[in-house]
C-alpha cells in the first residue's frame, strides 16, 4: 500500500522533473551527440563503443543533473510543493527515495540510455557482437552518474538555495574529475602506480573497460565509485529523513 502511494507521488514529481522543453532539448542533444561520436572514430568492440559515446554524454548529463537539481529541487522547496509532498501520508524515507528516483535516477537512465540506444543502432554490427559487454559499460557509466547525482541532490537539500547548490554541485563535480586527472598525471610523470590506480578507479568505466578487454586491473578499483556513491546516497537519505526541513 505504501509502495502504491509512493508510486503516485513519483508520477506527480516526474511530471515536473521531465517537463518540456529543457528535458527534450537535452534528450535530442545527447542523442545526436552520441550518434555523431559513434561514427567519428572506428570503435570495434562493444566496450569501446561505450567509452567513445558515453564519456561525453556523461559530462553533459552530469551538468544537466547538477543544474536541474539545484534549480528544480530548491524551487520545489521555495514554491511550497515540497512542503505539500511532506504532508502526504508517506514516510520521509520514501519521499527521499522518490525525489532521488525522479530527479537523479530516471533522468540519468534516460539521458544515458537514449544515447546508448542511438549508438547501438548506429553501430549495430559492432555492438551486436556482444550486447552484454555494452550493457555492462552502460551500467558503469550510470553508476558514475549516480555518484555525481547524489552529490548534487545532497547539496541542494542541504543549502536550499539555488545559487549555493549550483556552486557546490559544479565545484563538487569538477573537483572530483580534476582530482582524478591530477592523480593520473602525477602518477604517470613520477611513475607512481598507486596514484594511477586511484585515478583509474575514480571513473568506474575505466576498470570495467580494462577488465572487459583483459587488461590486468586491481579488483579494488571496481569498488571505489560504488562505495562512494552508496555512502553519499545513504547520507542523503538519512539527512532527508532526520534533518530536512521546509
Amino acid at each position: 500500500m505504501s509502495l502504491k502511494k509512493s508510486w503516485e507521488l513519483a508520477l506527480i514529481d516526474l511530471w515536473d522533473s521531465l517537463r518540456p522543453p529543457s528535458f527534450d532539448i537535452m534528450l535530442i542533444l545527447v542523442a545526436t551527440l552520441s550518434g555523431i561520436l559513434s561514427v567519428l572514430e572506428p570503435v570495434t568492440t562493444p566496450p569501446a563503443v561505450g567509452n567513445a559515446v558515453l564519456g561525453a554524454v556523461l559530462f553533459v548529463t552530469s551538468l544537466y543533473l547538477a543544474l536541474r537539481a539545484s534549480s528544480d529541487l530548491v524551487n520545489l522547496v521555495q514554491t511550497g510543493v515540497m512542503p505539500l509532498y511532506l504532508t502526504y501520508p508517506i514516510s520521509r524515507r520514501n519521499i527521499s527515495l522518490i525525489i532521488y528516483l525522479t530527479r537523479v535516477l530516471l533522468p540519468s537512465i534516460i539521458l544515458l540510455g537514449i544515447p546508448a540506444i542511438v549508438a547501438g543502432i548506429m553501430l549495430y554490427p559492432v555492438v551486436g557482437k556482444n550486447i552484454s559487454e555494452f550493457l555492462i559499460m552502460w551500467i558503469a557509466y550510470l553508476i558514475q552518474a549516480q555518484l555525481y547525482g547524489s552529490i548534487f541532490i545532497l547539496a541542494s537539500n542541504k543549502s536550499k538555495s539555488t545559487g549555493t547548490a549550483a556552486v557546490v554541485s559544479i565545484t563538487g563535480y569538477f573537483g572530483y574529475t580534476a582530482t582524478s586527472l591530477i592523480l593520473a598525471l602525477v602518477g604517470s610523470i613520477d611513475n607512481i602506480k598507486i596514484l594511477t590506480n586511484i585515478a583509474n578507479s575514480m571513473g568506474l568505466y575505466n576498470p570495467v573497460y580494462d577488465i572487459l578487454n583483459g587488461i590486468r586491473t586491481p579488483t579494488w578499483e571496481i569498488f571505489v565509485v560504488p562505495v562512494i556513491f552508496i555512502v553519499l546516497f545513504i547520507t542523503y537519505v538519512i539527512y532527508f529523513t532526520r534533518r530536512f526541513e521546509v
Binding site: F23, L27, T32, V39, L40, P115, I121
Partner: peptide
Amino acid sequence: RILFGIGIALIIASAFATQY
C-alpha cells in the same frame, strides 16, 4: 518525446557519418 529524440539523432548522425 523519446522516439522523436532518437529519430532526429539517427537522421543527423547518419548524414554526419556520410560526410565526416
